[in-house]
Design a protein around this nucleic acid. Structure first.
Lengths: 341, 341
DNA sequence: GTGAAAGCGCTAACAA
DNA sequence: TTGTTAGCGCTTTCAC
């Protein structure tokens, strides 16, 4: 409907400035090696004509796209139900924007989409990819690596055995979990339970490992499965209360889980933190600050993770830094004390 | 680091299949008007060589990109704090994917970004744009329209006076609000309050209008400002209780607001719904189902809104439908009864 | 320092 | 139906 007015080309700018196309091109791309007065003339012509380079034409010859794909596998709605994804995306967006790169979002939910994403990446539409690999058995990461596109993963991929050279950014889930459990122990709690996340995700598995680092092979009945949702937290807490009525502390795999647990504790008349101390994970503000009582939790800087992923990828893409990629970056976590523990 | 193997070109495929480039091009783009045996030969050559069309070269001549920008203005973190945005994005993504279009995400947060987005859209990188215009005074929509890119807005833009031909998708905020308030009235409640959203957003303004449609010019003290957050809901509810202790029903501008109100009501020993009935808006499952008691609310199908936005834009982009764009589409809302009213 | 010219890989007239 | 040819708008040697 809106008729596309024919946009001015390099040619037009060159004509107006009274120089060659090559000179205009040079000016547009930084202006090195062009004498000041000419630069000025060209700049003015660009301005007057409202010239904007045709990216397709440029990509055709440079083979760069200044675009990065962000691949989000979301078999479950959960990915969308918490702000995690959005925050990370924001971090990524900021960093890409700062380096004049575009963000192409690829949402997948199933086998068909995998093939599509593989094709797209292999098709050379983008310079690199940022991939969120949530599940241990996700075929996507492998597919993507085969596509031969420089990639940075968000969260440690499950199959990363440490020897392969995958680049990823992760939080120190294990260390954070340890800090949480130690804090509970330091409060004098002897019966510390853990409500896990879905253990096919490395983040959940790592948090469980952290718990075990501190607790050793204590009462296995104190570990109950959750799924990162409030509902899962409720179910787990009920089970816990039934099985180990003497539990006096809970380390929940994330804040949402903790909020569910909190609700059940209240229901059962257990005071928090007096009777049962509770710690979450994430420090998702809208959750952690709104619970009753406000949640002590392990904070991870999600937006920073996103930013870092983008930074790593762009560096990898930059010819100047070719091949200097580290295997993985793990961001620290910090314990945020509120009222629940 | 990963060396890009030189990808095969049309030329190569043509050579291998023993046909001309034009024929290969035809086959690759649908294969109309090419005899079956040739189609077959070309297909095989494509397969064997692993040929993938170079999108840049194609765009250069077709002036199509099969890509759509999604512009999200998010001056506030709030946009990210609830799953609204993510759901809409998902709907958009699904629809675009189904039509082989890519999603370029443009997140903005401030003046500088506006200019950047304007430049990008004017630069002809994408075929169209989907824009979320949240605030009345947002300069972005105007900027974008000036860029001359076909655009569909998410939510009625504030400046849309109904006469201009903006294309947008919105929920029936006003009708939904009316339904909610009528329901409360039908419950026999005489003192129905409204906690508003930020009134510089059309959705919030429309909900207030809906409330007024039913309540007329009743006690103005029953309308208190909120901001779509739980905290805002708490503050508003406290104010309400202080000002109109006889309030026996609350229509909150969204679920988050309602959750805050609920908390304060509980604090004050008011039973819900016996003493005060409460209705929210959105039917954000993680919120509405988790409140105590579960929230009666007005549901809007957010994912469908996203899908519809994409569909409208793609139709507008399709030469076959040129210029047949409707002004705005308003999706119905439905009252979901749970326990709070 | 600047310009001329040769493509990048593809599509779309136009011929055959 | 198939092939030939002329660009799309840009960057980039290579002369000048």
């Amino acid at each position: 409907m809106t008729e596309t007015a024919p946009r001015p080309t390099l040619e037009a700018v060159a004509a107006r400035a009274g120089v060659s196309r090559a000179t205009v091109s040079r000016v547009v791309n930084g202006g090195d090696g062009v004498r000041e007065p000419l630069v000025e003339r060209v700049r003015r012509a660009v301005e007057e004509l409202g010239y904007v380079p045709n990216q397709a034409a440029r990509s055709l010859v440079t083979r760069r796209h200044d675009a990065v794909a962000v691949v989000v596998a979301e078999p479950e709605t959960r990915v969308f139900a918490d702000p995690f994804f959005a925050l990370q995306l924001r971090g990524i967006s900021k960093e890409l924007t700062a380096h004049d790169n575009q963000l192409v979002l690829l949402l997948t939910e199933g086998r068909d989409d995998h093939a599509r994403v593989g094709r797209y990446l292999a098709g050379g539409h983008v310079d690199g990819a940022l991939v969120f690999s949530l599940h241990l058995d996700d075929p996507l990461p492998g597919l993507i690596q085969r596509a031969g596109v420089p990639t940075v993963f968000g969260g440690r991929p499950g199959w990363s055995d440490g020897t392969t050279d995958v680049v990823y950014v992760d939080s120190d889930n294990r260390g954070g979990a340890r800090a949480a459990v130690r804090h509970l122990a330091g409060l004098g709690r002897g019966r510390i339970a853990h409500i896990t996340g879905p253990l096919d995700q490395t983040s959940a598995a790592d948090r469980l490992d952290g718990y075990r680092d501190v607790m050793g092979d204590g009462d296995p009945g104190l570990v109950v499965p959750g799924d990162f949702t409030p509902g899962g937290g409720e179910r787990a807490m009920r089970e816990l209360l039934a099985r180990c009525p003497d539990v006096n502390a809970v380390f929940a795999a994330n804040d949402l889980t903790a909020s569910g647990a909190l609700r059940v504790l209240r229901e059962h008349g257990r005071r928090v933190p007096e009777d049962v101390a509770v710690i979450g994970f994430d420090d998702m503000l809208p959750v952690a600050e709104q619970t009753d009582p406000p949640l002590t939790t392990v904070r991870q800087d999600i937006e920073e993770m996103g930013r870092l992923m983008a930074r790593l990828l762009l560096r990898d893409l930059d010819p100047a830094h070719a091949g200097a990629a580290p295997a993985g970056v793990v961001l620290p976590t910090t314990l945020v004390r509120r009222a629940s523990a």
